[in-house]
Amino acid sequence: MHPRIAAGVFYLLSFLLLPVTQLGYVLWVGGLLARRGSGVSGTAQGPLSARWFNHMLGTRKDEPTERLMRVLPGVPPLAPRLVAGPMLLAHRLTGYVPRAFRYPFEGEVSPLHQASARITFFDAAVDRHLADFDQFVILGAGFDTRAFRLPKNRAIRAFEVDMPKTQALKREMVKAAGIDSERVTFVAADFEKEGWLERLVAAGFDVGKPALFLWEGVLMYLERQAVEDTLRKIARTARGSVVAFDYFTTEVLESQALYWRLARMGTRANGEPLKFGIESRPPVSERVAELLRSCGLSPGEHQTLGRETEGTRAWGGFATAVVK
């Protein structure tokens, strides 16, 4: 089927089956609302569902993610299937994959596609750096599954650091899903209140050996002091250690554009308001470098999200930093 015809048929079928998708979302969101006030992160489900769509479409296989989706607390197992069903049917009939779920993600990243695009960025960081390191730390792990997908032939020590209630729920889900977590050490800590590095060391982390830190989808929900404190603690680890992270700029926190106003309203309603943004004065890459150097780190890779022009400012980015 010609690509344009395939795309047209795909979206036509998706539109015709929209009531099925909407029913699934109603059931899914209803389950999330029922858990409000539990202290468990609601935003953690966004990256999980993005990876699940990749898995179901066959673009990025992730069996642990598929298993976790079966045991989402409070969410009827049928709900995600109803949400994804029309898209999967349209894909099987046409072979078309929506841009958001192509892997690796290519091209300009829109705010709508940020959660999907960052999967490629963080996967690349893992592939590149864990070839040399044997310590892997996921900060604010949420429902990340990378620690469960490490190569079996290497003795990599994996640690997940997260809020106590979110982590406790994840551990219950991992057990219920039958996922092998023997190689993962769970460390409960609140970035804004507790010494996470001290707890990490107490759990077996060796500050004398380099490590890869993933910090995905977390900075924007922390106060500036917690962001800087976390970066300084990473800077105290072994030379050569790397941290990969994503961020928003102050444009996201201040913009009156409808998309960002709704995004801020949504995170506030979910009990996780956006708090931190890198100063958006262009070029934002220099603002990121200034922050990293002030915390004792050397800037590494950087990808700006959003075009920087005289009248437009970047809204976010992906970056790495190195301990020198």
Rank of each mutant, 00 (worst) to 15 (best):
G316Y: 00
V71N: 07
P73W: 11
K193R: 15
L68Y: 07
G31F: 02
R232F: 11
F136T: 06
E251K: 12
F15R: 14
A84G: 06
K209W: 03
A176L: 13
Q256W: 11
V242L: 05
L258M: 13
G8E: 08
P164N: 04
L222I: 03
P282V: 04
G39Y: 12
V26C: 00
P80Y: 08
A6Y: 10
I5L: 14
R154L: 08
G204T: 09
N270V: 11
F136A: 08
R264M: 11
G266L: 14
F148W: 12
G240A: 07
T320A: 13
I156N: 12
F159T: 01
Q256D: 15
I278C: 04
A34S: 15
L219T: 14
H55I: 02
T304A: 10
G37K: 13
G95K: 12
P73I: 08
R70Q: 15
E286A: 14
R149F: 06
A321Y: 01
R118F: 06
G296Y: 04
K233N: 13
R199C: 03
A155V: 08
A269N: 03
G39I: 13
F122C: 04
T320N: 13
N270T: 14
R70H: 14
M69K: 02
A79R: 07
A44L: 14
K61W: 07
G24K: 02
A7C: 05
E310G: 15
K170P: 05
E286Q: 15
D180H: 04
E223P: 08
A117N: 08
T250E: 14
Y103P: 01
L112C: 00
K275Y: 08
R51A: 09
S41I: 03
S49W: 11
K61P: 02
R293N: 01
E310W: 12
T59V: 11
F122E: 04
P64D: 01
R287N: 11
I179F: 05
E254M: 10
R118T: 02
A117M: 07
P80E: 08
L130Y: 11
L214N: 01
K152F: 02
A257T: 09
